[in-house]
Amino acid sequence: MIRHLVLFKLNDGVERDDPRVVEGVEAFRSLDGKIPEIRHWELGWNISDRPIAYDFAINSAFEDAAALRTYVEHPEHQAGVALWREFSTWVIADYEF
């Protein structure tokens, strides 16, 4: 199995209630059940107020590298990425477990 972690940092001046952010969250929330390769899917807002904390996280799992690649290339995932690109930056980590 491969764990796929994504941590998002909202750009300066962008708040959680910004309509673009709300749309972006819903775009990723809706992926669960739409992409069969997803084995585990959870996401949410960070509750930490530490200065180094990121704002939003996705924690997901896939059977293997091919399944992860299918997810990454899926048009609905790419549409969500395009939304988030407008108002945030992010880092990822993919590891086997």
Rank of each mutant, 00 (worst) to 15 (best):
M1G: 04
M1W: 02
I2V: 05
L5M: 14
V6N: 09
V6R: 07
V6K: 05
V6E: 07
L7T: 06
F8Y: 09
F8T: 00
F8L: 07
F8C: 01
K9M: 06
K9A: 06
L10K: 01
L10S: 01
D12N: 13
E15L: 08
E15R: 07
D17Y: 07
P19L: 05
R20M: 01
R20D: 00
V21H: 00
V22F: 03
G24D: 03
G33T: 08
G33S: 09
I35Y: 06
P36A: 13
P36Q: 11
I38K: 04
I38P: 02
I38G: 03
I38C: 09
R39P: 00
R39T: 04
H40C: 10
E42D: 14
E42V: 09
E42R: 12
L43Y: 07
G44L: 08
W45Q: 10
W45E: 09
I47R: 15
I47W: 14
D49G: 03
D49H: 02
F56A: 02
A57E: 02
A57V: 06
A57W: 01
I58A: 10
E63K: 11
D64R: 14
D64K: 14
R69H: 15
T70H: 12
T70M: 10
T70R: 13
Y71H: 13
Y71P: 10
H74L: 11
H74N: 13
A79M: 12
G80R: 00
G80D: 01
V81L: 15
V81K: 15
A82I: 04
W84H: 08
W84R: 05
R85V: 02
R85N: 04
R85S: 03
R85H: 03
F87C: 01
S88E: 05
W90L: 06
I92P: 08
Y95S: 12
E96C: 11
